[in-house]
Design a protein around this nucleic acid. Structure first.
Length: 674
RNA sequence: GCCCAGGUGGCGGAAUUGGUAGACGCAGCAGACUCAAAAUCUGCCGUUCGCAAGGAUGUGCUGGUUCGAUUCCAGUCCUGGGCACCA
């Protein structure tokens, strides 16, 4: 069946280069780089004895040309039949039959198995005229490079194993760097017994050989990519239809006036007569000779963000003036599972649209944030083999046991409620338990949340109990957004207490309203502006866990000095609104403010409230912190030295000696070196 | 095997360019309030020696650079993730 392909390989290099201009995580960039799989090397032609044909090999290590002991073709290579010698033909055919019988799965899973077959033909090393045997083997892939390699057993482990297995003599070109027991893939060794390359370091020899190859006209510098073109048709109904019709085997694009092409109504979604998509069953469709495959899911997902900018436009996918205005997506949040799919395709489409002049940027997403997964923390009980007896975690090693997932909802921390366990499933009704210290302790493991692992926690239950704000803030408080971490329901109390404490700054349980309209003092402004600065920075950095802790510190500090002033509280709850929107909105209204807090102006940070005249300097003796001294920030080095040396603690450590040196970093620290 | 990220208290984690390690929270311990409970509040909380003051030690491990290293460098171990006969 004919299939459509997206020629993404044409963009391989630009997709690679473009990674330098986007803010993706290192691991995300690495995944894309691996997938694109750029490698630089050379193609090299080998003549074949008694044949007009040449074998083109691809190598990243042309420096090892004098260590070539054989060539290997992929079994699917087009020259295999042509060059095979008569006396080898039956063996070769047998091997080809064997390869064909093996599924991809087997080929991948039995990687270590060495198989191959000699063709009976010989090639000639273009540099020294040496005759080298030509083999075929399934470890060489038809789809990569030229489907043929030059094998250098002293430098490549697969080649080495192959040579050993088939008793092919090994040439050593790296002297004592090769020990005869395994290949050494180094580039640092100095070449020997390698003609004009002898004495050169391998890494340097690469360039020399490539120049020589091009000069002799027997090959060329060549870059290869692992990435393949992407299959772009699906034999399904749901998907954008291709605006293409077929005339005598030629695909003709529909005229723009015939667009948009919409999916026809169908009664059933069964496949077409010859395995095509469901559209092949629709006469009104096939009569027009329209393409019956549809596009895959990543077609639409590659450019939807552009359509969002201009969703009602009937003339174009998105007016350029509008995409110029909105520009790239500033922040894209998603999982790593899209690394080599959607995120690569949409980068390519954006480049295509940019090349066509239809948009003004060639990377879709400026910044990508991969949120971590909230994992489950599973609990296990240990059943003694062949019994209905369960042994506590700490003493389970005295028995042969099977671990069984236990529902986390009847385990408090790690202590299991044995009665709840008995009632859980009929099988366990008569279970008995071997306890430690009167308790049944469970084993734990962090895994994906999954019903089958009984480690799921239902957010709705928690929202019912604590409210959406608490739940939302606790999720943020758990840790850095990019990190996966296990859910721990116990910790949610802390965030809940914080919100209650916040509420008590406005209303007392006994006296009702306690917030007031008094003027705030410098100390209160200092606390507020310290908070504004930190919240602004943390929010921009997606450091939500530290932002939540900043709110806690702020409320702790304001409570300590009994601040209930609207002037301060107004600003605080505006900061809080993105983190705990419900309570912030409610308090905003309770404070008598007009309208929604969402329309309030974000408070401006003012440095002046944080200016200090003194600094509590840490004083180190030989790099170890011993005490602190409060010193004016204006003090210069000699003044500081005098203050420090007259300090009792410093005097004690000096033991009458004179310090060798006093290091003073203004506004930071002081270190006395004895 | 190759590549990437990461190893900090009982736990989740903090430490913005090398400058007071452990912020904030959970759990725990002791206490206040209460008939009691809940709620709230106070104190302690890396390890270790010490009644205390204070000292020693401490960011996976071994070295190095530095007045000073969780932070930089080299090596090594472990965990998580990705890729994998890609020549």
């Amino acid at each position: 069946m004919r299939q459509w392909y997206l020629r993404i390989t044409d963009y391989a290099n630009r997709l690679l280069e473009g990674l330098n201009n986007v803010e993706f995580s290192d691991s995300m960039k690495e995944m894309q780089r691996n997938w694109i799989g750029k490698s630089e090397g050379a193609e090299l032609d080998f003549d074949i004895i008694n044949s007009e044909e040449k074998i083109k090999v691809y190598t990243t290590r042309p420096d090892t040309i004098f260590g070539v002991d054989f060539l290997v073709l992929a079994p699917e290579h087009e020259l295999v039949q042509k060059i095979t010698a008569e006396e080898q033909r039956s063996s070769i055919n047998e091997y080809l039959h064997y390869v064909k019988s093996r599924s991809d799965r087997e080929r991948i899973s039995e990687v270590k198995q060495i198989t191959g077959c000699f063709t009976g033909a010989f090639a000639i090393n273009p540099f020294n005229g040496k005759q080298i045997p030509i083999w075929i083997a399934e470890y060489v892939l038809a789809g990569y490079g030229t489907g043929a390699i030059m094998a250098v057993p002293c430098g490549d482990q697969r080649d080495f194993s192959f040579a050993k297995h088939f008793h092919i003599p090994i040439t050593n070109i790296i002297g004592e760097n090769f020990n005869g027991n395994e290949a050494n893939p180094t580039k640092e060794a100095v070449l020997s017994d390698a003609d004009f390359l002898s004495g050169l370091k391998m890494a340097d020899a690469i360039k020399v050989v490539i120049e020589k190859i091009e000069e002799k006209g027997i090959g060329r510098r060549k870059t290869n990519f692992k990435m393949r073109d992407a299959g772009f048709s699906r034999q399904r109904y749901w998907g954008e239809p291709f605006p293409v019709k077929w005339e005598n085997g030629t695909a003709i694009p529909l005229d723009e006036s015939q667009l948009p092409l919409e999916l026809p109504h169908v009664e059933t979604y069964g496949p077409g007569p010859e395995g095509e998509g469901p559209l092949a069953n629709i006469a009104s469709w096939t009569n027009k000779k329209l393409e019956t495959s549809t596009m895959p899911g990543f077609a639409g997902s590659s450019w939807y963000f552009l359509r969002y900018m201009d969703p009602k436009n009937n003339n174009s996918f998105c007016d350029k003036k509008i995409s110029d205005y909105w520009g790239q997506v500033d922040v894209y949040i998603g999982g790593t599972e899209h690394a080599v799919g959607h995120l690569l395709y949409s980068r390519m489409w954006t480049k295509v649209l940019y090349d066509l002049g239809l948009i003004g940027f060639d990377e879709p997403f400026k910044k990508l944030v991969n949120q971590g997964m909230i994992q489950g923390s599973s609990r296990f009980a240990y059943r003694v083999k062949g019994t209905n007896q369960f042994v506590s975690f700490g003493i389970k090693n005295q028995y042969m046991t099977d671990a069984i997932h236990v529902d986390v909802n009847f385990v408090d921390g790690i202590e299991m409620d044995v009665n709840a366990f008995k009632n859980w499933k009929p099988d366990f009704a008569n279970a008995d338990f071997i306890l430690e210290d009167g308790k049944y302790i469970c084993g734990t493991e962090v895994e994906k949340m999954s019903k089958s692992k009984f480690n799921t926690v239902n957010p709705d239950d928690l929202v019912d109990k604590y409210g959406a704000d608490t739940f939302r803030m606790y999720e943020m408080f758990l840790g850095p957004i990019e990190q996966s971490k296990p859910w721990d329901t116990k910790g949610i109390e802390g965030v809940h207490r914080f919100l209650r404490k916040l509420w008590r700054m406005f209303f007392s349980d006994t006296n009702g309203k306690i917030w007031n309209e008094e003027k705030a003092n410098d100390q209160e402004f200092k606390i507020l502006h310290k908070t504004i600065r930190k919240i602004e920075a943390d929010t921009e950095n997606f450091s939500f866990n530290t932002a939540v802790s900043t709110f806690m510190v702020c409320v702790n500090e304001l409570s300590e000095i009994n601040c209930h002033k609207k002037e301060i509280l107004d600003k605080l709850i505006i900061l809080l609104a993105p983190y705990a929107p419900h309570i912030a909105e409610e308090l905003w209204s309770q404070l008598g403010n007009e309208g929604s807090i969402l329309n309030a102006t974000f408070p401006a940070f003012e440095e002046k409230y944080l200016l200090e005249t003194d600094k509590e300097y840490p004083i180190s003796i030989n790099g170890k912190m011993r005490t602190t001294i409060s010193i004016s920030l204006d003090a210069n080095h000699p003044e500081v030295e005098q203050i420090v040396l007259s300090n009792d603690v410093v005097q004690k450590w000096l033991e009458g000696k004179t310090p060798k040196k006093i290091i003073f970093v203004k506004g930071k620290m002081i270190n006395v070196v004895i």
